[in-house]
Structure formats: C-alpha cells, structure tokens
Computed example of a mutant assay.
Amino acid sequence: MYLITNGQVVTEDAILESHEVLIRDGLIEGIFPSGTIGHELCRNVIDANGGYISPGFIDIHADFIETMASPRPTSVMDFGLSIRETEKVLIGHGITTMFHSLSLYKEDEFGFKPIRQAKNVRKLIDLIDASHNRQHLIRHRFHARFEIDNFDEIENLKQYLDQNKVHLVSFMDHSPGQGQYRDLEVFRTTLKGYKDITDQAIDGIIAKNQLKEKLTIQMIKEIADLASEKNIAIASHDDDTVEKVELVQHFGATISEFPITLDVAKEAKRRGMYTIAGAPNVLLGGSHSGNLCAATATKHQLIDILCSDYYPASLLHAVFILHEKHGLDLGAMFNLVSINPAKAVKMDNEIGSIKKGKKADIIVINKIDENYPAITAVLVDGKLVTRTHYRV
C-alpha cells in the first residue's frame, strides 16, 4: 500500500490542489484531501512536496528503441540489453506505457538502418512480447508501422497479428510528392541532411518512388480487418488531404497520425478520429518537415494526443510549454499524454487516469529551478519503480 500525499492530483476533469492518492494491491483506492489518510495507516508514504501527481504517460508512437538498439548504422547492440536500458530512460521521462514503433520498411531512402531489417524487427517483437511475463519496469507494447510498398512483410504482419503480438497498426507511405514529403524541396533538403547526394541522384529517387507498386486498398483493408478482429486500433500516417482521411477511415482507421494541415486535422476530428502530433514539434516551435505546427493545431483543439516520436523527453516538456507559453489549460494538456492515448488504443478501462479501481500507473512531477518540470517518482502497477532526489 502506498500513499502519495501533499500534491496536485491530475484527474481527467480537473487538477485537485492539496490532495493525496491511496494505492492498495496495485490499484487506485481513491483520491482524498491531504491529511485524510493517517500516515500511521500506510507505511509507504511519498511526499509530492506540492508537485503534480499525474497518470503515467502513454506514448503510442516512438521509434526511440531503434536508436538504443542501433546507435550507429554499423553498431547493433544486444536487443535484450537495449530494451532494459530503454525502459530505464523512459521512466525518467514519466513514460509508463510505450508503444515501440518498429518499422516494416522495404527500403529506406534516408540510409541503411540494420534495426529495420526484417530479422531484427522480429527479434525485437519477440522480446517485447516476452517482456510481459518477465521482470520489467514499464508496459511494453508493439506498434507495427507498415510501409505500404512492402509486399515481402505482409504475411509476417498477419502472423504477428494472429499471435497477439501487435497492439497498434499504422499504414505509412513515405513516397516523395505526398504525405510528409508532399513538398519535394523539403524531401531534397532532408535527404541531403542524411547523405552526400547530388540533385540528379535525388531526381532519380523521386521518379523511382513515384512509380513503385503499392498495396491496393483491398490489401490494406484485409490487414486492417485482421487487426479489428483482435480489437487492435488502426492508424493512418501523414494524412495530407481531406480525401485521404475519408479513404483511411473506410478501411477502419480511427487514428490520424501527424495530419499535415489544419484542414486535414479538422476533417479527421469531424469524422471522430483521434489526431496525433509530435511533442518534439512543440519544443521546436514547429514541424521539422515544414508541416502542421503542433502548438497551433492544439490551440485550435484539433490535437487529441501527443507522442514523443523520436525524443522521449518531449512529452513532459510539451505539456508545460503548451500551458505556460501558449496559455492552454494544464489539465487538458495532461490528457494529451494520458487518458486520450489510452482511449485511442483501447486501454482506458485500466490505465490513463487517476480513478478508483484503475491500475496505479502514477508519476510525481516537481518543478526544479521554478520552471523545469522533473519526474521525481514513478509507480507502475502500484509498485514504486524509481525515486529521484535533486540536491542543492
């Protein structure tokens, strides 16, 4: 049993000043005004010191594991070690549930990544699946990012679905001329940032990609139907037109990852889809690809979820930047990284908010130097997994 006291409890609807949370047998027993529960009744007391007592963050799109497993194109670390070290990093950023976004690519024009080879993806998937029944710090889940020209991996993806190893499926198309790279100059600039390449060579890459064969809508729908049968959420990726939003919803997508414009995000919302923006976009002040500004879209109430994408620290800081710099309600910003993603991936009956009967995935956030939010305690499944004490 744990008592987290003397804090500001973040609920789905409000932030409760001077409250405490009682945890018993891994579940949230209740929220009470501070001092209600006598400390003598609970041996494990965590003093929040006036900080925020928040649900643990749920990150449903992040490829950070790829960097940890292969920090250089010629360096591939032991995958078991990589997952262990990754979760140690993630709890320091308040992430208690991570959907590791592993890519099923046929070819990556931005450079060879050994971690995206089919055999390595399979190894990581199997380790993520095995983690559920081994000692672990956080909830590990697998987000299958399927590039729609990868005919070679269709049967493998179906197998992963059949084996209950997939927890979210997204369909991606990174071809230049549409989606994230609808502006071909952005594609050129980005590609040159990855490799020394001539404009003539880039012209060849663009032409090749625009002519390549892709899965038909019926093929995509067949995979989507398998996911739906397993009650797995389906996402589209980089929606760049209203027509594409209509199309992806046709095959069962309920999540629009990184809509490219305000109009597209608005259409996805109108259709009842969850919209996702990258938290690094908030920290950077805009999209690194020249697309939708996450802060602007959030101000227009067009973003439901923030994900860390490639930078785990961004979730925590984006919440406070959107509140302190952009004047948005702090409680609503916490929802972008907790209950909203939980709803999108159908986990909200167990986690995502501090509510009686839910699993106690809870973090404590204190401000350091007045303006720097820091994670100082993390509980997962009602067990304390880390404490951090800043010293003067």
Rank of each mutant, 00 (worst) to 15 (best):
T241R: 09
I223C: 02
K192T: 02
T216D: 05
K212F: 00
T190Y: 15
T198Q: 07
E257K: 08
A224G: 08
G193C: 07
T241C: 10
Y194H: 15
K212Q: 13
D239H: 03
S236R: 10
I220Y: 03
A201H: 15
H250W: 05
S228L: 14
F258P: 10
Q210R: 12
Q180W: 05
K244Q: 13
T189F: 04
D199I: 01
T241H: 05
G252Y: 04
D240S: 07
A224M: 09
T190M: 11
G193P: 08
E222N: 12
L215C: 05
A224C: 13
I220M: 14
V245N: 11
P259K: 12
K230M: 07
K208H: 12
S228K: 14
D199V: 02
V242I: 15
A207V: 11
K208Y: 09
V186C: 03
R182V: 01
D239A: 03
E213N: 12
L211F: 00
I220H: 01
A227E: 09
K221V: 00
M219C: 00
E243G: 00
K221S: 14
I197C: 11
L247A: 13
R188K: 15
E243H: 06
D240M: 05
A207M: 09
I260Q: 09
E213R: 13
A235P: 07
K244W: 00
Q210K: 14
L211R: 12
I232L: 06
D199M: 06
G179A: 07
N209K: 14
T241S: 13
G193F: 02
K192N: 04
E257G: 11
T241A: 07
Q218G: 01
K244S: 11
K244N: 13
I206N: 04
E243M: 02
T241V: 03
K212L: 10
K230I: 05
E213G: 01
V245Q: 08
T254F: 09
N231M: 08
Q210V: 07
E213H: 04
K244R: 13
I255A: 02
P259S: 10
D183T: 05
I234S: 07
K208D: 14
I220D: 00
T241Q: 06
K192A: 06
I232P: 02
E257L: 09
L247K: 13
V245P: 11
K214M: 09
Q218D: 13
M219K: 13
S256V: 03
D203M: 02
E222P: 04
I255H: 08
A207N: 06
L215P: 04
D240Y: 08
V186R: 04
A227R: 03
G179N: 04
K230L: 00
D238C: 06
I255L: 10
I234E: 11
G193K: 05
E222H: 08
L215Q: 07
Q200H: 11
S256G: 06
G179F: 10
I223Y: 00
D239G: 04
Q218T: 12
L211C: 10
E246Q: 14
I206K: 07
F251W: 15
D183V: 02
T216F: 03
A253C: 15
